[in-house]
Nucleic acid binder design. Structure first.
Lengths: 257, 257
DNA sequence: ATACGGTTTTGATCCATATCAAAAGGAATA
DNA sequence: TATTCCTTTTGATATGGATCAAAACCGTAT
């Protein structure tokens, strides 16, 4: 079995790292958090898959998937962050998700892309042409299994987001978001609460946050301020949140009665 | 190749019919619209799959999947309609989708179900225990491919719904819904507009509609009334809509500028 | 340090949709 | 036909969050 480290940037740029989210375990070799196919593929198989990919670097702000265009590729993020979104002609925007290192992208597409994708910072990724990856399935059925799991997990998240967007109040949306972001950063295991006073980086603008939560930036700001006033969170700076009382946050998020 | 008709209720109750939506083509044998695995599986394989299923009949109102419970089964609807939803403790409800004959259910689940499912009318379905179906994958990899396609299609729909819930106005939501429902009923091909004056059955209560669109029943009613006043639709009775000017509906739905 | 441009926060007001209330419609039953 | 019950529509009012406006903040350049 190849470890991810053997395929990592130290030896070869932009390794394959197919997963929908980083795992909780750190790499034995390099200490960083990796995940994905290295657990289920042999080195030969990884080699095979790697050859099917093109490596791409993107400048911040690059829109590399355009909603409505013919879906040509799947992507696997190796470095940086990406926002996925849909837009209306008058400029209204709904961010449908964020993708970071390890995330696999491009499942939400029939013949055409259902979403656009934009690099939030410097991004490096592997790009697979769709026909190529579908051909690879024949050789690596385990890949198909993996992708099905990724898609199923995305569906769970999508349904959570529908509940949030359709039925939660502003403050409930913010509270829900903060907790789900903590899970994403693996500050806590999925379904568990972070420890009190956990510190969390939040590398998103208020605009991104608003467009993800179906609110305006003003409402996002006001809700965060209120949680701070109530002593539930602290905001030492724009891109950092301290979850002082995660339990209270959770009660707001789940609308506990 | 077995046709679906050979496996249909005339010969054997509750045939397997794995698909996420009916196809546009009618069955040569019985005229009804079927779809799914019959196109890709041999009769032996269908037989194999059918043996892995339990047939179940459900009375209207039966909740047969409970959000948060251990995910034990996948389901394939053969008859009737199902609503999928998530709830908050205080009773707020978000319907995440509707499933009719031919739909495959249960992908939005990790260890636990992400949603609840309730029979809207008399429902007949096939139930597969999750371990069993996963075992079947070994024998029928094509099934996994099929399910991946179903999941990808669900993701496209989920992202559409996020845009609707996060960023569209009440009247835009109603217009979008009417057009997507027309597609679902195959009154028009996907991505195309229905013909002017197309008639459409709408077997949903205003409450279901409101909970699907993130609105109240009053706002749903008012928006429908306005579209009627404007001569864009007609509502001969509660469960029937005439799409008088689909083009106008589409302009509202897509917020054309 | 100061000035500048962008982002975020806070404040004041407005409005789309929710909420509350009542009337109208429709199906089932007496 | 009249009665009841439930759903839907319409009307009146309230409100959460949007919009408009200005101040505070923050990083960068001068």
């Amino acid at each position: 079995m190849a470890t991810l480290h053997e395929l990592s940037e130290f030896r070869r740029p932009l390794p394959i790292n197919l997963a929908n989210r980083p795992t909780a375990s750190n790499c034995d070799d390099c200490g960083a958090r990796h995940s994905g196919l290295c657990n289920v593929l042999s080195e030969d198989e990884l080699e095979f898959l790697t050859r099917a990919a093109q490596r791409v670097s993107l400048a911040p702000g690059t829109v590399f998937v355009e909603e409505g265009e013919k879906a040509a590729y799947f992507y696997n993020i190796n470095q940086g962050n990406v926002r996925l979104f849909k837009s209306l002609p008058d400029g209204r925007r709904q961010i449908t998700g964020f993708a970071g290192p390890g995330y696999f992208l491009g499942l939400a597409a029939g013949d055409n892309n259902a979403f656009s994708a934009e690099a939030m910072d410097g991004v490096k990724l592997c790009r697979f042409s769709r026909p190529t990856l579908l051909a690879v399935f024949e050789e690596l059925p385990v890949l198909e299994r993996k992708l099905l799991n990724v898609a199923m997990h995305e569906l769970v998240l999508a349904q959570q987001q529908m509940l949030l967007l359709g039925r939660k109040t502003a403050i409930e949306r913010i509270a829900s978001f903060l907790l789900s972001w903590a899970e994403r950063l693996e500050i806590c295991p999925a379904g568990r609460l972070p420890a009190p006073n956990a510190v969390m980086k939040l590398p998103l603008s208020r605009t991104d946050l608003a467009d993800y939560l179906g609110l305006t930036i003003e409402t996002v700001s006001r809700s965060l301020s209120q949680l701070k006033r109530d002593g539930i969170i602290d905001i030492p700076n724009i891109h950092e949140i301290i979850l002082i009382r995660p339990r209270a946050l959770s009660e707001i998020a789940e609308a506990a009665i």
